[in-house]
Design a protein around this nucleic acid. Structure first.
Lengths: 255, 255
DNA sequence: TAAGTGAACATGTACGTACAACATCCGATT
DNA sequence: AATCGGATGTTGTACGTACATGTTCACTTA
C-alpha cells in the first residue's frame, strides 16, 4: 500500500499519481516501458479503477505517460520541463542550469503609472508603482535587460532588500507574497538606445523579448516585466505531445 | 439538446465540450461570467453528471474555464493553451483562431542533406532529404517564412500533394504518418536576404524564429524546420502555474 | 447595525457497473 | 506458409450512487 499516508486529507488519486510519478522520475520505471494496467494498479493501491484513471489523467497531462486505447500506457521520454519557480525567476533558473546569476541594478524608483503600465497592472493611471531596471548576467556574461513594474504594496518591499544580492522572487515569497502563475508573451524586437547601451549591442539588433506577468492565487497582477535577452545567450524551448496539453499558444496579433 | 449529433461515434463528452466551447469562443458566454452548474448542464444535455465533468475537464485543460470547489466555473479571459495539432500546424492554427491561412510555395526540392540538416534529422550527410520553402500568411497578410526539411520517405509524399491547398500536417496524418510530439526552440534573428525578400522587410530586421522538430511515436525525427515570423504578426505565449508542470524551458547557450 | 449561523447550492472525491473499441497474439483455415 | 478469425487483455465511454468540502446568501441574534 501507500507509504506516505497521513491524517491530513490528501485525495487518494493524488497520492496515487504522486507515487507513480516517483516511480517514473526516479527511473525505476524506465523510459519507453509499459506501466501496469489500470486494473492491476487498482488492486495494487486498493482503490477503484475510476480513481486510478483520475491519477493517470494527471500524469498524462504532465506528459509523463502516454498511450492509446487497448494498449497499456508507456513512460514518455523526459521533457525539458522546468518547475514554476525556475521558469519565473532568473536567479533560480541560473542556479538550476548550473550557472552563476549576476545582476546590476540600474534604477529602482517609485513613480506614477503611465497608461500602458496602469492597464497591465490593473491599477488606475497615476497610481504609484515601483519600477526597476536591471542588467542580468550568467557567469558574468551580460544576458538580459529586465524592466519590471511592481504593484506598490509589493514593490515597496524591494526598497528594504539588497537587490544585487539575490532572487527577488525568493525574497517576496519569504515576505509572504506568493506568486501562483505567470504568463510570458514572447516575440522579437529591435534594440533601442537603452537596450543597446546596457546589453552592448548596436541599436536595431534583434533581441528576444519576453513580456512577463506574475499573478497571485487570487488572480491579482503583482508584476509586469519586459525582459530582453541576447538571442545568443538564451532562448525558450517548448515541447509538446499529442496527448498532453500544455499551457502554451501561438497567437496572431490584430492590425 | 445538441444540434450536430450524427450517426458516427463521437463521444458524448466531446460533443458536450465542443458545444460549450462554441458558446465561449463565440462570445455568447462572456468572459468572466459563470457558466451553468454541472447538474443543470447534465439535465440540459441529457447526460450524466460524470459525463459533464469529463467535458468540463477538457475545457479546464484548455484554459477556457476555471473555478474552485463550491463555485460555478467562470469563463477565462482569452487564449492560453492550444492542442498539439493546432500548435504544430500553421493551417490548423490559423483556422483555430478564426483566420484564413494562406501559403505560397517558393521551392520544393529533393537534395542531399548538408551537415547541419543531417545532424538534425539523424541521417547521414549526403542522404537525400526533401526541402521546402514556403511563405505563409493570415488573411492574406504575410506572416511567416518556413524552411522545412523532411525525411525522404515522408517528404516524397509531398510531391503528390497540392502544397498550396491545405495543411501538410493533416495530409501526412491522412497518409498514415502520425506525428507524436514536437519541439520548438524559440529565439530572435536578424532577417537575411531571403527573409527580407519574402517577408517584405529590410535586411537586419528582428524576426521571431522557431526552430521546430517533429517526431513520431517511435521517436524518429521526421521534420526539422526554421520558421521566421514577423513579430508584429504573431508571437508565442507561455502560461505556467505553480502547481502544474508544463513542457517548457528557458535554456542558456554555451560559448 | 454587525456578526454569526445554517440552509441551499455547487464542486470534489470515491466507489461501482456495464459495455464499446482497440491491440495483440495464437490457433485454425486456406 | 500466409492469412484470417476470434479470444483475451486493456483502455475508453457512460451511467449511477453517496458523501465530503467549499461558497453564497438570507435570516437570526446580539
Amino acid at each position: 500500500m501507500l507509504a506516505g499516508m497521513s491524517t491530513i486529507a490528501i485525495p487518494m488519486h493524488q497520492q496515487v499519481s504522486d507515487h507513480i510519478r516517483q516511480e517514473i522520475v526516479s527511473g525505476r520505471w524506465s523510459e519507453g516501458s509499459m506501466i501496469p494496467g489500470e486494473i492491476q494498479l487498482s488492486e495494487q493501491y486498493g482503490v477503484s479503477r475510476s480513481t486510478i484513471r483520475q491519477a493517470l489523467a494527471s500524469l498524462r497531462r504532465e506528459g509523463l505517460i502516454r498511450g492509446v486505447q487497448g494498449r497499456r500506457p508507456i513512460v514518455c521520454k523526459a521533457v525539458p520541463s522546468q518547475p514554476f519557480s525556475v521558469f519565473m525567476s532568473f536567479s533560480e533558473w541560473a542556479s538550476a542550469i548550473g550557472r552563476v546569476p549576476g545582476q546590476r541594478t540600474v534604477e529602482i524608483a517609485r513613480r506614477s503609472a503611465d497608461a500602458a503600465t496602469a492597464d497591465l497592472l490593473h491599477v488606475a493611471e497615476g497610481d504609484p508603482v515601483v519600477q526597476l531596471l536591471r542588467v542580468r548576467s550568467l557567469d558574468g556574461v551580460v544576458t538580459m535587460l529586465e524592466r519590471s513594474r511592481y504593484l506598490r504594496e509589493v514593490g515597496d518591499l524591494l526598497f528594504e532588500m539588497d537587490l544585487d544580492a539575490g532572487s527577488i522572487y525568493a525574497y517576496l515569497r519569504q515576505r509572504g507574497v506568493d506568486l501562483a502563475s505567470g504568463r510570458h508573451v514572447i516575440d522579437a524586437v529591435a534594440a533601442d538606445a537603452v537596450d543597446a547601451e546596457h546589453l552592448g549591442v548596436v541599436i536595431g539588433s534583434p533581441l528576444l523579448r519576453a513580456r512577463r506577468t506574475a499573478v497571485d492565487a487570487q488572480g491579482k497582477v503583482l508584476e509586469v516585466a519586459d525582459d530582453r535577452y541576447l538571442p545568443e545567450q538564451a532562448n525558450f524551448i517548448i515541447e509538446n505531445h499529442y496527448s498532453a496539453n500544455t499551457g502554451m499558444a501561438r497567437v496572431a496579433l490584430v492590425g
